[in-house]
Design a protein around this nucleic acid. Sequence first.
DNA 1: TCTGGGGTCCTAGGACCC
DNA 2: TCTGGGGTCCTAGGACCC
Length: 422
Amino acid sequence: MKNAIALLDCNNFYASCERVFDASVKNKPIVVLSNNDGCVVARSEEAKQIGVTMGAPLFKVESLLDEHDAEIFSSNYALYGDMSGRVMNLLHNFTPEVEIYSIDEAFLNLEPRKHSLDNLAHSIREKMYKWTGIPVSIGIAETKVLAKIANKRAKKAQLKEQGVLNLYRSPKTEDILKETNIEDVWGIGYRSTLKLKANHIFNAWQLRETDNRFVRRLLTVVGARIALELRGVKCLPFEQSSIKKHTITCSRSFGQTVSDYEQIKEAVFYYLTRACEKMRKNNLAANAITVFIGTDRFRPIPEPYSNSATYSSTYPTDSNREIQEWTIKTLEKIYKKGFEYRKAGIILSGLVPSENLTKRMFDDEKFRQQHKLMKAIDEINQKFGKDTVRFGSIATEGRWKMKQARKSRSYTTNWNEMLVVS
DNA sequence: TCTGGGGTCCTAGGACCC
DNA sequence: TCTGGGGTCCTAGGACCC
């Protein structure tokens, strides 16, 4: 049975979120910046039209933006995360099977259904806009890879009014695959594009028609699966259950370069605090940490240096204190004096549910108490704001602190910054 | 002056064991 | 000592995604 799969994608998501809460930017070009206000990560339709490219460094497009009276925002992930939650929750009103794929995308299993696929999609789209203010596009097909292609087309200019493209058992599929460049196929990145083009495969239809053993040799099973999906054979499963996290990362570029060990440690401890909060929120514990540091990619002083190291422990933990000890041991191994560092980060891995951890041979009681303490600290910080209670070793300011000069308010997640109607 | 961050999956190769 | 194959587990690195 070949079910119809839809991919729903929020249009220009971050820019659309900013617009929902600020009517004054209704028809203006809007861009949203990456962390550190470095480069453009989201653009409104108007911003795309004046020629701002995705990923452009701010300093290169700033004059263009000024010229067109554009609005520039630092990224406000609390706001986007909250808006994303609203959109995703509403999807369950239309179909029970929803796979949240990213902050702004979800796959929907549209079977069984009472109405035609087109009517259903249009109704989802209209209601989503009415209820959240976020415009969405919907592509429908037999597989995820095809639904992605349909979605991308649904966004194109001539279909903008309607925002829906249904390719399920559609005779249009062949033409559309022929018009889809190989690099625009989901899962085909820069490297694979080079290999495919060298073998005279330039569009999605050609990849579909290529012998699968050849594709497999060229691009491993990953590429072979994509080619099969283009033929309508489901290879990428529908993963409804919230996927278990395997790793939790927190890393940042510094506002300014840092060479001093103590300051780098401060930064790394700060990232660790954020990552541990996220881990406990998911009721997980980690048994390993990877620490990495590096110089500026564009201006390495005195020369490029980057390194990482991993510490693995016998027992998983969710206690900041314990993981801080692992971190110091790891950081000491990779830190080298005399470099101007620009970036650092940590990855927590070996994640397991924090309930029912195996009893420790030693100090088990001490660990249980720390677990309770950490949970209590999280609750207080949740209620009264980030870092209300924190370890003495955690600094919140420093040369490493990133820049965020243009952040909008946390309209939906902070009482003090809520929208006021007067 | 100014160039993001958080993830996943796959593969190759080394260590170790029988 | 230099002889053989096969299996597993782990990790680093590549590739890709949003």
